[in-house]
Measured scan of single mutants.
Amino acid sequence: MASQGTKRSYEQMETDGERQNATEIRASVGKMIDGIGRFYIQMCTELKLSDYEGRLIQNSLTIERMVLSAFDERRNKYLEEHPSAGKDPKKTGGPIYKRVDRKWMRELVLYDKEEIRRIWRQANNGDDATAGLTHMMIWHSNLNDTTYQRTRALVRTGMDPRMCSLMQGSTLPRRSGAAGAAVKGVGTMVMELIRMIKRGINDRNFWRGENGRKTRSAYERMCNILKGKFQTAAQRAMMDQVRESRNPGNAEIEDLIFLARSALILRGSVAHKSCLPACVYGPAVASGYDFEKEGYSLVGIDPFKLLQNSQVYSLIRPNENPAHKSQLVWMACNSAAFEDLRVLSFIRGTKVSPRGKLSTRGVQIASNENMDAMESSTLELRSRYWAIRTRSGGNTNQQRASAGQISVQPAFSVQRNLPFDKPTIMAAFTGNTEGRTSDMRAEIIRMMEGAKPEEMSFQGRGVFELSDERAANPIVPSFDMSNEGSYFFGDNAEEYDN
């Protein structure tokens, strides 16, 4: 993207840094990872977990959730003011799984939030270390993106479920800051804005008074975040219109849905970061690795190297396929839920299948599930090659597409044709070009129609051997075009429920 120079890199967003050079960025990201790792080690000690239990991804998720809940100030305040039966607002906890007599047992633990905050700050040299908290939120978000298709949420806001490739980060909490905003897809931002506008339509006082002023500035800020994701002048001009509207209503909703559809071809720039579970960072720190000293990046080879040398386990339900569970977590670790499966298959070195073909449910185990038949197995999170994460949407291309997802959002900077089903997408653009945004709409449609099938995206960008740390010898991959490109292809993934 041309304006790259004016933006802070995501590592800076990730670490609240002012302008830093590459070495400083690597050190501050490393410091953040160190903090998460030290916190995780301490929690495993508190909970008396064995090494194996500490490497269980379900335990990692519970521990991450506990610290996120302990620092969720708004919710904590709300819980104190609106006490609900049987919930102690000062405590947080969740299921911890232990191996007892050759069987997995679930144990519900409860801790004072104050105590968890103390352990977290102690692991982070006394700081609140917001960057580390956001990092864990993005890992949870990436896992949700890989596990669930947001059909219901899309339909509720009037969008087409086939636009799911635009929904990265749709389950990120509001408090995820600049680093969170960077990884949100165009569809996620559109959905947040539509929800806001709908509230304004239904509630006369939404934009009024002292609160209304705050609401208005939040609305304009979200519009600017979305505008910054678009790469064409016409899309940005249309966002200006939406932002400046005196009284946002149905016309703005129409414009936003139009823009979301246009992003299936004229893709937005959305950041991709490899955020790993805390149970990967903990053992690495415990083994003596100093992330701050060595430096770390979320968008280069580092996460690949770390996963190459990590042992992570997962509980497996009786009829689940461990290899499929591994694929789910591998995609989440690489922030690749909406990437082209052919690119992923090449990088991973084994075939990556669409969601609907995987015999696996989510990673988390519900409290009512029976533990008797639970097994555990090693997650295979290694890769054959590594590639640089991208934040450009890439230019655009036609490809055989599917009944489910009709476009992709690249996660890796790797040369390819970008699949999208042009006739299906263009069919949504018939007729409606009147109104105050008509010239911009016409211009956007013209650009979409001009998108050429034979153009290559990320020209000359390749993948790298894991021994090639400096990215000196790019390998331009070859793809098996007979395979499906979309992950949520004609899909039956479970729906995400809060």
Rank of each mutant, 00 (worst) to 15 (best):
residue 90 K to W: 03
residue 65 R to C: 11
residue 115 E to Q: 09
residue 206 F to I: 13
residue 313 Y to Q: 13
residue 64 E to P: 12
residue 116 I to V: 15
residue 54 G to W: 05
residue 378 T to M: 11
residue 113 K to L: 05
residue 138 I to W: 07
residue 31 K to A: 10
residue 139 W to N: 06
residue 302 D to E: 06
residue 445 I to K: 08
residue 91 K to R: 15
residue 335 S to W: 06
residue 277 P to D: 11
residue 110 L to S: 01
residue 13 M to V: 04
residue 389 R to P: 03
residue 413 S to W: 05
residue 141 S to H: 06
residue 26 R to A: 10
residue 415 Q to E: 00
residue 15 T to N: 09
residue 302 D to K: 08
residue 443 E to D: 15
residue 334 N to Q: 06
residue 481 M to K: 12
residue 170 S to A: 09
residue 153 A to I: 04
residue 260 A to L: 05
residue 315 L to F: 10
residue 320 E to S: 07
residue 176 S to F: 07
residue 487 Y to I: 07
residue 158 G to Q: 10
residue 219 Y to H: 14
residue 233 A to Q: 08
residue 369 E to D: 08
residue 322 P to H: 07
residue 217 S to C: 09
residue 354 P to M: 02
residue 353 S to N: 14
residue 282 G to F: 11
residue 40 Y to T: 09
residue 127 D to K: 10
residue 488 F to H: 03
residue 63 I to E: 03
residue 57 I to H: 02
residue 380 E to L: 08
residue 316 I to K: 02
residue 259 L to E: 10
residue 49 L to R: 09
residue 335 S to C: 15
residue 260 A to H: 10
residue 114 E to R: 02
residue 324 H to W: 11
residue 269 S to R: 02
residue 163 M to T: 15
residue 1 M to T: 09
residue 63 I to Q: 06
residue 222 M to T: 13
residue 56 L to I: 14
residue 459 Q to A: 09
residue 326 S to W: 06
residue 187 G to L: 05
residue 50 S to N: 07
residue 71 F to E: 05
residue 399 Q to E: 01
residue 155 V to I: 14
residue 335 S to E: 04
residue 216 R to I: 04
residue 117 R to E: 07
residue 404 G to W: 00
residue 101 D to M: 09
residue 475 I to H: 03
residue 194 I to Y: 05
residue 158 G to N: 13
residue 230 F to P: 02
residue 64 E to G: 12
residue 388 I to H: 05
residue 381 L to T: 15
residue 175 R to K: 15
residue 392 S to C: 05
residue 367 S to C: 05
residue 380 E to C: 09
residue 18 E to Y: 10
residue 331 M to P: 06
residue 317 R to L: 03
residue 338 F to S: 11
residue 410 P to E: 00
residue 187 G to H: 05
residue 138 I to N: 07
residue 80 E to T: 13
residue 474 P to L: 01
residue 444 I to Y: 04
residue 309 N to Y: 02
residue 267 R to Y: 02
residue 308 Q to D: 02
residue 374 M to I: 15
residue 168 Q to I: 05
residue 190 V to T: 14
residue 496 Y to E: 02
residue 356 G to W: 12
residue 72 D to M: 10
residue 444 I to C: 15
residue 304 F to K: 01
residue 255 D to V: 10
residue 410 P to N: 02
residue 305 K to F: 13
residue 77 K to H: 14
residue 330 W to Q: 04
residue 135 H to W: 12
residue 133 L to D: 13
residue 111 Y to I: 15
residue 215 T to C: 07
residue 58 Q to F: 06
residue 357 K to R: 12
residue 316 I to N: 12
residue 48 K to I: 09
residue 342 R to Q: 15
residue 457 S to D: 14
residue 266 L to G: 01
residue 232 T to S: 12
residue 114 E to T: 04
residue 314 S to T: 14
residue 173 P to E: 06
residue 158 G to H: 13
residue 414 V to F: 03
residue 61 L to G: 06
residue 227 K to R: 08
residue 35 G to R: 07
residue 388 I to G: 04
residue 162 R to Q: 07
residue 102 R to S: 10
residue 147 T to S: 10
residue 96 I to D: 05
residue 415 Q to D: 00
residue 193 L to R: 00
residue 96 I to Q: 01
residue 313 Y to V: 09
residue 74 R to S: 12
residue 407 S to W: 04
residue 222 M to F: 15
residue 419 P to K: 10
residue 326 S to Q: 07
residue 85 A to R: 13
residue 311 Q to R: 15
residue 327 Q to C: 03
residue 228 G to L: 09
residue 209 G to D: 11
residue 494 E to I: 10
residue 223 C to G: 10
residue 42 Q to R: 09
residue 315 L to E: 05
residue 28 S to L: 01
residue 380 E to M: 04
residue 166 L to G: 00
residue 58 Q to K: 12
residue 214 K to S: 02
residue 207 W to C: 07
residue 19 R to S: 03
residue 460 G to T: 06
residue 256 L to R: 04
residue 45 T to E: 02
residue 89 P to R: 02
residue 419 P to V: 15
residue 384 R to Y: 04
residue 456 M to K: 14
residue 151 T to M: 06
residue 355 R to L: 14
residue 286 A to L: 12
residue 190 V to N: 03
residue 49 L to K: 03
residue 161 P to T: 04
residue 83 P to H: 10
residue 251 A to C: 11
residue 344 L to K: 09
residue 152 R to I: 05
residue 215 T to W: 01
residue 340 D to G: 12
residue 233 A to G: 03
residue 384 R to H: 13
residue 7 K to P: 00
residue 373 A to M: 13
residue 267 R to A: 03
residue 7 K to T: 00
residue 81 E to T: 06
residue 324 H to A: 07
residue 478 S to A: 08
residue 64 E to A: 03
residue 455 E to Q: 15
residue 54 G to A: 15
residue 40 Y to K: 00
residue 289 Y to E: 03
residue 8 R to L: 09
residue 433 T to V: 11
residue 173 P to S: 12
residue 476 V to W: 00
residue 139 W to D: 05
residue 138 I to D: 05
residue 347 I to C: 14
residue 462 G to S: 03
residue 407 S to F: 00
residue 173 P to R: 04
residue 339 E to V: 09
residue 282 G to A: 15
residue 139 W to P: 07
residue 274 S to E: 07
residue 485 G to M: 05
residue 418 L to P: 01
residue 193 L to T: 11
residue 12 Q to E: 00
residue 483 N to Y: 11
residue 189 M to T: 09
residue 345 S to V: 02
residue 411 A to H: 01
residue 135 H to E: 08
residue 218 A to W: 04
residue 205 N to P: 01
residue 334 N to F: 03
residue 78 Y to E: 06
residue 36 I to P: 01
residue 212 G to F: 07
residue 216 R to N: 07
residue 131 A to T: 04
residue 487 Y to Q: 04
residue 350 T to M: 15
residue 298 L to R: 09
residue 366 A to Y: 05
residue 314 S to R: 02
residue 163 M to E: 01
residue 152 R to T: 08
residue 24 E to L: 08
residue 475 I to R: 01
residue 452 K to A: 08
residue 278 A to D: 11
residue 464 F to T: 05
residue 198 K to R: 08
residue 139 W to Q: 08
residue 139 W to V: 10
residue 276 L to C: 13
residue 258 F to E: 08
residue 151 T to Y: 02
residue 235 Q to D: 07
residue 358 L to T: 13
residue 75 R to E: 04
residue 375 E to T: 12
residue 272 H to L: 05
residue 432 N to P: 10
residue 6 T to D: 00
residue 349 G to R: 06
residue 292 E to H: 13
residue 76 N to V: 15
residue 77 K to M: 13
residue 243 R to N: 02
residue 401 A to Q: 10
residue 203 D to M: 06
residue 45 T to W: 06
residue 187 G to Y: 10
residue 256 L to E: 05
residue 370 N to K: 07
residue 195 R to G: 05
residue 87 K to I: 05
residue 120 W to Q: 08
residue 360 T to W: 01
residue 153 A to Y: 06
residue 431 G to P: 06
residue 360 T to Y: 08
residue 280 V to C: 13
residue 260 A to V: 15
residue 86 G to E: 02
residue 57 I to G: 12
residue 185 G to D: 11
residue 400 R to W: 09
residue 488 F to W: 03
residue 170 S to N: 13
residue 425 I to W: 00
residue 119 I to Q: 06
residue 351 K to E: 11
residue 490 G to M: 04
residue 87 K to S: 06
residue 277 P to G: 08
residue 287 S to V: 09
residue 183 V to H: 03
residue 30 G to I: 02
residue 468 D to C: 14
residue 235 Q to G: 05
residue 30 G to L: 01
residue 267 R to E: 07
residue 455 E to W: 00
residue 247 N to R: 05
residue 224 N to Q: 13
residue 239 M to C: 11
residue 237 A to T: 12
residue 149 Q to L: 05
residue 467 S to G: 13
residue 74 R to D: 12
residue 220 E to W: 11
residue 477 P to M: 03
residue 279 C to N: 12
residue 305 K to Y: 09
residue 479 F to L: 14
residue 165 S to Q: 01
residue 307 L to S: 05
residue 272 H to Y: 11
residue 181 A to G: 14
residue 260 A to Y: 04
residue 414 V to N: 00
residue 466 L to E: 00
residue 373 A to N: 14
residue 153 A to T: 12
residue 188 T to R: 02
residue 102 R to W: 15
residue 441 R to P: 03
residue 96 I to A: 04
residue 244 E to C: 04
residue 425 I to A: 14
residue 438 S to D: 01
residue 29 V to F: 09
residue 238 M to F: 01
residue 292 E to G: 13
residue 49 L to D: 08
residue 250 N to T: 09
residue 15 T to P: 04
residue 1 M to S: 09
residue 469 E to L: 10
residue 57 I to C: 03
residue 50 S to P: 14
residue 472 A to D: 02
residue 425 I to G: 00
residue 372 D to T: 10
residue 476 V to M: 06
residue 444 I to S: 01
residue 319 N to T: 14
residue 465 E to C: 00
residue 97 Y to G: 09
residue 144 N to V: 14
residue 96 I to C: 11
residue 100 V to G: 12
residue 356 G to H: 07
residue 208 R to M: 12
residue 211 N to G: 10
residue 408 V to P: 02
residue 419 P to R: 05
residue 103 K to G: 10
residue 389 R to Q: 02
residue 80 E to L: 05
residue 332 A to K: 11
residue 12 Q to R: 15
residue 26 R to T: 02
residue 448 M to E: 12
residue 317 R to D: 13
residue 394 G to F: 02
residue 370 N to F: 07
residue 263 A to N: 12
residue 180 G to Y: 05
residue 464 F to G: 00
residue 170 S to G: 12
residue 176 S to C: 11
residue 366 A to R: 02
residue 405 Q to V: 02
